[in-house]
């Protein structure tokens, strides 16, 4: 017999009357085993197989290398965004998001190209470019720390960075040549470019941190339930701030890789790459058994999305249809994942 406990289940008599008044929202239960966990992989494999049938060139080693090479920019920036979403939570309105990644990449590329063409050495130019990127990240981190919604705060800094990119480049294409930029661009031994080496190093480091270290485990905890993390003695604000620095830093790296691959900084390219970056970070859930954002999944998603574009070109799909087909295929993959998680609910 209890006095005022709202949730207390009385022995027998009063049980149904005592509603669990304070229990939180129902979480999304998640299936963790069985064939359905791999449905995401299955659909992706199916799509890739389709392209392989439509175009024999698709599976050609040179083409595969080119896909990987092209995927580096979205993959690296996507991993940075994935870190923000892991730490900030994946609620689209309230959770972690960094809309400035595309513009940050663009401005980093422009800064590097402008400085190199002004005669500065590549090392100081790259450092300056990364410094500008980290400044944007700091602004994001401070704004979010003050309690601004990440969606709005980073939308604002995206505008600033986009504008900054046009100011720095004076809205002109600026060539970026010479070492190490040509090493990043051109395929070396094994048909692998320097950009791919960078991607592998970054991916390995982040996968290791997020799966094998205390830092990574804590980062997931902070994103899943900041209150519980704080009660357990963690400081969610610190993790959140750091995540925006990581995101901007990786966006800066991606921007330099992009300018290297194009042999030039192209003004306004930030808005073009932004949506793919967001797409691959969120799509990483497809490759996770628990449907959470992962670093490894982001890498796979970037490869898949790049392969889609490549495959459609090879299959001779008219360019005006590329967007529609790409969108439909992505919807198909996401639908399968949602359906399997619903099936897991039963």
């Amino acid at each position: 017999m209890s006095t005022t406990a709202p949730e207390r289940q009385g022995p027998g008599a009063g049980a149904p009357a005592a509603a669990p008044a304070r229990s939180g929202a129902q979480p999304r239960p998640i299936r963790t085993s069985g064939w359905a966990s791999y449905a995401g992989y299955g659909v992706v494999a199916l799509v890739l197989a389709l392209f392989a049938v439509l175009s024999p060139v698709f599976t050609d080693p040179a083409n595969v290398a080119s896909i990987i090479n092209q995927a580096t920019v979205t993959a690296i920036a996507g991993m940075g965004l994935a870190v923000v979403v892991i730490v900030g939570g994946d609620d689209v309105v309230e959770g972690g998001i960094d809309l400035s990644v595309g513009a940050t990449a663009a401005v980093a590329g422009s800064v590097a190209a402008v400085l190199v063409s002004a005669g500065l050495g590549p090392a100081p130019a790259v450092l300056a470019a990364l410094g500008v990127a980290l400044l944007i990240g700091t602004a994001n981190g401070v704004a979010v720390g003050l309690g601004l919604r990440p969606l709005l705060a980073t939308l604002a800094t995206m505008g600033i960075a986009t504008s900054l990119d046009l100011v720095v480049s004076q809205n002109m294409k600026i060539a970026l040549e010479g070492q190490p930029f040509t090493w990043l661009r051109d395929a070396g031994g094994l048909g692998v470019s320097g950009a791919v080496v960078v991607l592998l190093v970054v991916a390995a480091a982040f996968i290791w941190v997020f799966h094998r270290t205390r830092l990574g485990v804590n980062a997931y905890a902070v994103g899943q339930n900041p209150t519980a993390a704080r009660v357990a003695g963690l400081n969610p604000a610190r993790y959140r701030f750091a995540s925006y620095l990581v995101s901007s830093g990786l966006a800066g790296v991606a921007g330099i890789l992009l300018a290297s691959r194009l042999s030039a900084a192209v003004p306004g390219i930030g808005t073009q790459i932004l949506l793919d970056i967001i797409l691959v970070a969120y799509m990483s859930t497809v490759f996770s058994r628990r449907l959470v954002i992962t670093i490894g999944g982001t890498l796979l998603a970037a490869l898949f999305v790049t392969a889609l574009s490549n495959g459609m070109t090879l299959a001779g799909i008219a360019s005006q249809w590329v967007g529609a087909v790409k969108g439909a295929l992505i919807l198909a993959v996401l639908t399968v994942v949602v359906l399997r998680s619903k099936a897991g609910n039963r």
Binding site: S23, G24, I30, Y220, Q224, N225, A228, R290, V292
Partner: peptide
């Protein structure tokens, strides 16, 4: 905490 689901648990972990 009194509300374990909201304030204590990582429900998806």
């Amino acid at each position: 905490p009194a509300n374990r689901r909201r304030d204590g648990l990582l429900v998806n972990a």
